[in-house]
Amino acid sequence: MTRKPTIADLANATGLGAATVDRVLNARPNVSARARQRVTEAAQQLGYPLPRHLEDGLRDTRPDLSLGFVLHKKSQHFYQRFAQQIEAACAARPDARITCSIRFSVSQSPEDFVREIRTLADRCQAIAATGVNHASLTNLSAELAARHIPLFSLLNDFTGATGRGYFGLDNLKAGRTAGWMMATRLQRPARVAVFVGGTRWHGQAMRETGFRSYLREYAPAIHVLDTAINLETRQLTYEATLDLLTRVPDLDGLYVAGGGMEGAIAALREMRPSDKVTLIVNELTPESQRGLSDRYVTMVIATPLDQLCSALLDRMTGAILRPDEPGRGASGLDQQIYLPESF
């Protein structure tokens, strides 16, 4: 009786690891088009039964594209969901077979973002990334443009004139929306605070500007304290919020314009009754949704990730397949608003 070929046989025939062969056969992510081709050819030669998706691939005339993505905060729910939405959008593309490579920067330093983007530039035809505003990233954008590798900025517009587009919220509008909610909720003289992640996040600076400008225009009796830096970390935000509540016992509101809102929610739970301080945060996560439910959070301003990823994939694939199309443009998405009664 002729022995049936196995995954081990395919691995030996292709020179790939058994785990990679298994990912190809089961249509799992992070597999290159070349690996799919090698496994398909070896399966045909050895008589290994091809799964349906590889059989369909034999008749698939769509071009193979390799796209790279750099995110950060790998352990946070928002960025995990962002990665899942990117993978889903890549898999759903009707006009190309996309190999999707997602990497996470280990920190928010410019050097770490540059290193991850450079790694992807060696094997990807277009890249989209989060990143801080820094000369090293602006210069890298220009370098990639000279190599005809489009670079798109996500959530924070850091690429400068040589980037191929920004995908995220209109941050000035998001800040003004936060200001509107703060003024609408308080409707009296009050003291409020604002946290930003750092000085190199242009998007957060625009949110702060929008927040302050709305209150200055429509609620001048609300005094905004000096902006605090929380480095977008849960622990530092927690400690800074505890300190703020101790120093300013009559604090009426807090707007966390960047990350780290989990720390602010935890501090308020310890120091104040629910509904006592108007807290406005960004992005819907399990923590912010629980905060809304028990009224420690007043409003969440969220990014529509499904819309972002769909629009982003349109532009990334277009930049490769139709390179003569206009190069740069902004994509300011409409924000999603969640309130305590949204659930």
Rank of each mutant, 00 (worst) to 15 (best):
L305Q: 11
G57R: 15
V256W: 04
N139M: 11
A11C: 07
E262I: 08
N156E: 11
P249M: 10
L245D: 02
L154F: 07
N139Y: 09
I222W: 12
V39G: 02
F152S: 05
D122T: 12
D170Y: 10
G197K: 13
P273N: 04
M299E: 08
L308H: 04
R315S: 06
V248D: 04
G327P: 02
Q307L: 14
Q76A: 05
Q204W: 08
Q307C: 08
L58N: 08
D170T: 09
P326D: 02
D64I: 00
R38E: 00
V281K: 10
R123S: 06
R185M: 08
L251G: 01
F158H: 12
D64K: 13
P110W: 09
L305R: 12
Y238A: 07
G318R: 14
R272L: 00
V106S: 11
R81G: 00
Q125V: 03
A178P: 00
Y296K: 14
A330E: 15
Q76K: 15
V300S: 04
L313N: 02
K73D: 07
L144R: 14
L65A: 01
Y79E: 04
V132H: 06
T298V: 05
L151A: 05
F104P: 00
Q125S: 03
Y218W: 09
E325P: 04
A319C: 02
N230E: 12
Y255V: 02
T233M: 12
S32W: 13
F82E: 11
E325H: 10
L71A: 06
